[in-house]
Design a protein around this nucleic acid. Sequence first.
DNA 1: CAAGAAATATACAGATCAGTCTACTTTTGA
DNA 2: TCAAAAGTAGACTGATCTGTATATTTCTTG
Lengths: 195, 195
Amino acid sequence: MGMAQKNIPSAKRDHLVDTALALFTEGGYHAVGIDTVLARAGVAKMTLYNHFASKEDLIVAALARKAEQSAQGLEKALAEAGADPQAKLLAMFDWLEGWFRSKDFRGCIYIKAAGEYPKKKDKPNQAALAFKQARVRLLLELCRQLGVKDADTLAWQIAMQMEGAIVVASMHSRPGAAQEAKAAAAVLIEAARRV
Amino acid sequence: MGMAQKNIPSAKRDHLVDTALALFTEGGYHAVGIDTVLARAGVAKMTLYNHFASKEDLIVAALARKAEQSAQGLEKALAEAGADPQAKLLAMFDWLEGWFRSKDFRGCIYIKAAGEYPKKKDKPNQAALAFKQARVRLLLELCRQLGVKDADTLAWQIAMQMEGAIVVASMHSRPGAAQEAKAAAAVLIEAARRV
DNA sequence: CAAGAAATATACAGATCAGTCTACTTTTGA
DNA sequence: TCAAAAGTAGACTGATCTGTATATTTCTTG
């Protein structure tokens, strides 16, 4: 019978996830219905439910897809910044600016996912938190490499500067926020070095 | 006939807005239906639609109610901080921490509103942006009083530190983010003074 | 080619959604 | 007191929602 197994790679599944990511990014999670995604993807409803148990699972897959893309782009940007951890940290804000200035920038889908699925047990909420935690771990690792005394505090401060830049850039339509945040991060790093 | 006029003060209307604010804060805007709000408020559906043209208008009213409460609390905190603009700026982060540690802290309803109503023409989006703009204006005024050279940049940097603190506190369940952000703001202010 | 898997179209269930309508009751204020 | 205003109950649209059932077709691959 016509039943694909869940989580098995498939071109249709891939396309579905890509379409879902684009539409949820544009319109939000609750506001965009399954039927809209299916129509845009040109895929039958049963194909969706053969690959995913629920809409929330599709959302989680879309969040994971974005996480891959994001990690890939960021790793490249960090590699191009060279070996210096400070240069890498500051390069993250240039990378942010590139995102802010891309024509399809609609803010952070993880912040939005946590907003629309506020309960800790909600799968999109868990996926969003996991992504953010990974980013903080990356910041913490770089701050440790800086050799500053309180790497933990600095990492969270830079994390907040980044999250704030995303919020300001999206809500106020202010892509230049990235450079202001970068300058702030530089000041924070210098101050942390001096301690 | 039984038709109250829109935007006319009324105890029922007030209670409806309070209930809506609480429920939308907890569960999100699309996820919480009109019927849920009405049931919780103990109010008839026609009472809602006699006071508001649509659900979105009720959301806007709830956002406005929160803005009043927020402005009231913040003004008090700033007044208690004394006349020094730097003290006022740093006091904002203590005020943030109080909010983060309140048992009903669920993140920023304006960030969420902008996320769920992403189009600029959506009324909740406009209301959310207006609130955030007002806050930036307040920060800018305080930074100008500091007498630093680039008050504009400093104001946006502190704004980002605040927004980031809100995101981190809510997503990572980290109310202590407020103090880390406060320390960061102090560093940024000191650096801006030196220029 | 042939068999099995994958994807399809379509109809449907059952719930929920925002919003309307009507007739009735309660509250309010001159 | 009495009339207008405000609020209520409840049925009712008509749309939309997630998810399922079924029968058919297309694709893949040995």
